[in-house]
Design a protein around this nucleic acid. Structure first.
Lengths: 147, 147
DNA sequence: TTATTAAAAGACCTAATGGTCTTTTTGTAT
DNA sequence: ATACAAAAAGACCATTAGGTCTTTTAATAA
């Protein structure tokens, strides 16, 4: 669905936040292992996220990555479009450029509700909200249905 | 949303079908112009579609591309996954590989209805159904709302 | 104040996608 | 029968995405 960089970024950030909740600051090695991404590539991606201001880092012994609690939560939408551009959300879902009279796009209407749902999802959910969910699931696993 | 090849293929096929309805068989030149894609690249893509059995072609004077009316309609899903692989539809929407207990994917549930809607759309709509819509819209433009 | 640890920077490589062009084959109209 | 028109084949090139590695900078613990 997304490109590799976005996927690694998303997974890495959620993991980092998850560790932060537990008062830990994971480093590149740990993150790369956890998200099953190549070490150097992970390092590069995390660097970019720091430069973009989405993430903080500490050098030296005991260093690692962490989120600034004072900054607002990072929505999936902002993260994704910072990496892939916002064409993923704004463009016509089926890539039929002009939806004009002379060249109408026949999928547009049918795709509209889907695009709306996606936009809702990525503007409501944040890296932090996802990490929190994972954390809660860890503590208290989902109840099984009766059988 | 999709890669270029998929986009050009989709747009090209819809255009070809649209011409077929009007008893015409467009050639590469015409298709490329219409979909605003590079001539040679369009040629290559159409060739692939013919080889894949999605489309027929005629060489020589008066030649061009057309659909075999006896073949079943080509769903968007089949077209897309023949070009991009089916990972676009089957994978977890947010690329968080394992949705297991140890590494749960927190977006999965929220994305599920969206994926379903997409799957429905791409399995119901076909190149032919889209072309027919465009054709009808051409003949009888959408009614404007009162104002 | 120095050794060690970890991120930052940036050069570099590889594979995949996107795109171009020339030559060959095939069909059809005349 | 032949000229012409059009697709088929396939080599080739450019750009981007994905990935690797070495060197540098900065922080901290001892």
């Amino acid at each position: 669905m997304f490109n590799k960089e976005t996927e690694y970024a998303l997974r890495g950030l959620v993991y980092i936040k998850l560790q932060n909740i537990q008062e830990k600051r994971p480093g590149t090695t740990e993150v790369a292992k956890e998200i099953e991404a190549p070490y150097f590539y992970t390092a590069k991606i995390l660097q970019r996220l720091v430069r973009a201001g989405f993430l903080e880092s500490m050098k030296g012994k005991g260093g690692g990555f962490y989120f600034d609690q004072d900054k607002p939560d990072l929505t999936l939408g902002r993260l994704i479009s910072s990496i892939e551009g916002d064409s993923s959300f704004t463009g016509c879902g089926f890539g039929l450029k002009q939806c004009s009279a002379s060249n109408p796009c026949p999928v547009h209407e049918k795709y509209a509700p889907i695009r709306e749902a996606i936009n809702k999802l990525v503007s409501e959910e944040t890296v932090q909200s996802l990490a929190t969910k994972v954390y809660k699931d860890k503590l208290q696993p989902v109840k099984k249905k009766k059988r």
